[in-house]
Amino acid sequence: MLGWHDLRVPAPRLEITYCTQCRWLLRAGWTAQELLTTFPADLGEVALVPGTGGVFTVRLDDEMLWDRREQGGFPELPVLKQLVRDRVAPDRDLGHSDRKS
């Protein structure tokens, strides 16, 4: 019989770390929901990771896609979807969220 520790999470793993002190759980959850809706078969896991000190980062496997401190704010959802798409499904058209040619 397999236990929970025997289960393997398919790649890629998207991780959103959010500040609990700033109460950014709803923002992190909404972001996760939007990415799971857009990439239902392309993401193996989306994890919400509590943090402190004003952190809000989005990481895909070992690659940092967004850091609130470095980029100076929160990601616009179309921009974040493009960053994720470029790595997990580069041929996918994001429709109205896609960058203009």
Rank of each mutant, 00 (worst) to 15 (best):
L60I: 06
L14E: 10
T20V: 02
E63S: 04
A11D: 10
Q82A: 05
D91S: 08
G3N: 15
R59Q: 13
L35S: 07
L2P: 09
L43Y: 00
E45R: 09
R27C: 03
Q21L: 15
G44L: 08
R23A: 10
R8W: 14
L36M: 14
F39E: 06
V88D: 13
G44A: 12
S101F: 14
Y18M: 06
D93E: 11
D67N: 13
M1K: 07
D61T: 05
L36S: 15
P50G: 08
R27P: 08
I16L: 10
M1E: 15
D6G: 14
L26T: 13
T57G: 01
L48R: 04
D91E: 15
Q21E: 07
V46L: 01
P40E: 12
L83W: 13
P78T: 07
T17Q: 09
T20L: 01
V79C: 05
V49Q: 10
G51T: 05
P50Q: 07
R68S: 09
P40F: 06
A11P: 12
E70T: 08
F74W: 05
R13N: 02
A11Y: 10
K100N: 12
F56C: 03
G72P: 03
G53V: 08
Q82Y: 11
Y18V: 01
R92A: 12
V79H: 14
R85I: 01
E70H: 04
F74D: 06
G54R: 03
A11W: 10
V79E: 10
T17P: 00
D93I: 04
G29K: 11
V84I: 15
A47E: 01
R59A: 06
T31D: 02
D61H: 01
V46D: 06
E34N: 10
G73S: 00
V79N: 08
L65V: 07
G3L: 05
E63I: 09
D42K: 11
D93Y: 11
S101H: 11
G29T: 00
D6R: 14
D61A: 07
L26V: 13
G3I: 05
R92S: 09
D62C: 00
T31V: 09
F39T: 08
P78N: 03
W66E: 03
C19W: 02
M64V: 06
